[in-house]
Design a protein around this nucleic acid. Sequence first.
DNA 1: GTAAATTAAATTGTGTACAATACAAAACAA
DNA 2: TTGTTTTGTATTGTACACAATTTAATTTAC
Lengths: 147, 147
Amino acid sequence: MSKCEKDDMLRLKSQLCFPLYACSKEVVRRYKPFLDELDLTYTQYITMMVMWEKQEINVKCLGQILYLDSGTLTPVLKKLESKGYLTRKRSKEDERNLRVTITAAGNELKERAKTVPQQVGKCVHLQPEEAEELYRLLYKILDDMGL
Amino acid sequence: MSKCEKDDMLRLKSQLCFPLYACSKEVVRRYKPFLDELDLTYTQYITMMVMWEKQEINVKCLGQILYLDSGTLTPVLKKLESKGYLTRKRSKEDERNLRVTITAAGNELKERAKTVPQQVGKCVHLQPEEAEELYRLLYKILDDMGL
DNA sequence: GTAAATTAAATTGTGTACAATACAAAACAA
DNA sequence: TTGTTTTGTATTGTACACAATTTAATTTAC
């Protein structure tokens, strides 16, 4: 077998986009075993995180927060509705807006999800200052690219 | 409309996984206009980056470098083969291995792709030291999670 | 030397992502 | 007003991403 070591992959390694892409996928993968217990996918999980916070929101707004469009959100929200965690209803004032509202069951799920962040955190061994710096740099890029 | 500002999204913002996930997607999106000119998707692009470097490799090996499995790579490689950028052939020594080899056309594509990194780089305004630190932290996480 | 285990790819099924399009409701303009 | 534009959501089509399964080839264990 030829060399599989990741030495002199200068081009790939020099791009910054690649470790970002790979790291994102690997970290999300670390969530899977814990989210499986809640029968949630990662996308459903981050959607519920917003719902726990906001309780009620429309799709556009949700998409701005999650950096997702209606093409992605519509099926996710329908799935979460079918699981009984939220309801979808057109706004009376403006029929274009779809109001997404969390249900009691949705709020109860928060209790069960409480330990997920810490459990995943155990898989990523960064010093607090490092995590903070990483956090700062990622948001600098995000803000910079202009939501 | 209710508040769409991303204030007090403490939960979402405190997770580190989320900015990683969002940032990865947004940066990849920045590649699209440039990759469109080459008729390459992002996944095809990073695959070609490895091929430009290695010239020949098997699928397993490629997957380890790109953090992708055969389920993702097989269709990508077939697509790149149909575009004439590489060939796929079982290894003589071990028929289980599929050798992926870059073609002359594949190598020629490298010339046209040369400017992509700098063009995307213009969209992300990090200081060199910041980029280096981000790079270091991402690879620390990746290495830490054990390829 | 053959059965069992392992390995590498491919296939299948589910779930994103997102561009492009469609469509209906609301805002705007002449 | 009535026609035009904009806006919010849904739909369609393409392309990942990955777990799980399958298949075929090689290795191993005995």
